[in-house]
C-alpha cells in the first residue's frame, strides 16, 4: 500500500442547477488505495451528490479532484479516465440496468472502454463468476430478484476493472440473506485491494466492516476517522443523528455498570465480542 492517495478531493462545492441550495459546501477527502470507507449521514446530506461528482457525472462548481495524483480536467479523456477508475453501483438497480440480457448489461462498461470483443467476453465471464451469476448469463435482468439485480450491478462495475468502487446504499431493499451475500462480496473485493466507498444507514455494518468512517451533514464532512473514534464523539453523533451500533452500546453499558474493565477494546463484530468476553472472564 503506497502512501499516495488514490483519490484526493479538495474543497469540492456543488449546487444543483436551478436551485440556490448548495448541496456540497466544500468537501475535502483523501482516499488511500485499498481502504474500506463507510460514508454515513442523513438523507439529503449530500452523499449521492458527492458520489456523482467524484465519478465525473456531475461537474463541481469549484474544487479539485485528483485521481492517482493526476488532476481531473473538464474534458472527455480526463473524465473518462476518472469514470473508468471510479465505478458507482447505484442505489436503485432498476435505474442502472439498461440491457436486456445479463451478459449485455455487464458488457456495457467494457465496450464503452473500447476493448476488443475477446477481452470484453473475458471480463464479462470473470465478473459474472465473481458474483455467482454465470448461470444467469442469458437471462433478462429485469426479471431477476432484487438481490440478483444488485449483484448484476456490482458485476457491471467489476467488469470495468475500476480501482475504486462506490456503493450508494447497497444494503437498502435487500433481505438479510442477500445483505449477507453482499457483505461477503464486499469483503472479497476488499481482499483484492479494491478501494471501496460505501454509503449506508446500517451502523452495525459500518462499525464491523469499515476501516474509516466519514460523516456527512448538510453538505459538509463533520468527522473522519476509525468507526470507534467517530462514534465515541457524542457531538458528532448528535449533529448527524447517528445511531450507535448495538455492540458498541452493549460494550459501553457493560463498562458503565462496572461489569467490564474500561479497556477501550471496542469489539466490532460478534466473534470479537465473544473473544473479548472470554478474555475479561479469564482476567
Amino acid at each position: 500500500m503506497s502512501n499516495e492517495a488514490i483519490l484526493r478531493i479538495k474543497d469540492l462545492k456543488y449546487t444543483y442547477s436551478g436551485g440556490d441550495h448548495q448541496a456540497l459546501k466544500g468537501i475535502s477527502l483523501d482516499v488511500m488505495p485499498g481502504e474500506r470507507i463507510c460514508i454515513v449521514g442523513n438523507n439529503g446530506a449530500g452523499k449521492s451528490t458527492f458520489f456523482l461528482n467524484v465519478n465525473g457525472v456531475l461537474h463541481p462548481d469549484s474544487g479539485e479532484i485528483y485521481f492517482k495524483g493526476q488532476k481531473v480536467e473538464d474534458n472527455r479523456a480526463s473524465l473518462n479516465e476518472l469514470r473508468r477508475g471510479v465505478g458507482i453501483v447505484f442505489q436503485d438497480a432498476d435505474n442502472q440496468i439498461i440491457a436486456s440480457t445479463v451478459m449485455g448489461e455487464v458488457s456495457f462498461g467494457p465496450i464503452n472502454l473500447g476493448l476488443d470483443d475477446d477481452e470484453v467476453e473475458k471480463r464479462v465471464d470473470e465478473a459474472l463468476t465473481e458474483m455467482n451469476l454465470s448461470e444467469f448469463k442469458h437471462r433478462a435482468p429485469h426479471y431477476c430478484s432484487g438481490g440478483e439485480k444488485k449483484r448484476i450491478t456490482i458485476a457491471d462495475i467489476i467488469a470495468m476493472h475500476s480501482e475504486v468502487i462506490i456503493f450508494d446504499e447497497p444494503t437498502a431493499a435487500l433481505d438479510p440473506l442477500n445483505a449477507k451475500m453482499l457483505e461477503e462480496a464486499l469483503t472479497k473485493l476488499a481482499d483484492q485491494h479494491k478501494t471501496l466507498l460505501i454509503s449506508t444507514h446500517d451502523m452495525d455494518f459500518a462499525y464491523r466492516w469499515a476501516q474509516k468512517l466519514v460523516v456527512f451533514s448538510d453538505g459538509q464532512i463533520i468527522a473522519t476517522g476509525t468507526p470507534v473514534e467517530v462514534l465515541t464523539n457524542e457531538a458528532v453523533c448528535e449533529q448527524a443523528n447517528l445511531r450507535k451500533p448495538m455492540l458498541m452500546r452493549v460494550y459501553e453499558d457493560m463498562v458503565k455498570h462496572g461489569i467490564a474493565p474500561d479497556d477501550k477494546a471496542y469489539p466490532q463484530d460478534v466473534a470479537a465480542f465473544d473473544h473479548w468476553l472470554e478474555s475479561i472472564k479469564a482476567s
Binding site: 456523482l52 469514470r83 435505474n95 462498461g109 464503452n112 470495468m160
Partner: peptide
C-alpha cells in the same frame, strides 16, 4: 447518469 458513470 448511470450510463455516463460507465463511460457512455
Amino acid at each position: 447518469d448511470a450510463m455516463e458513470a460507465r463511460c457512455y
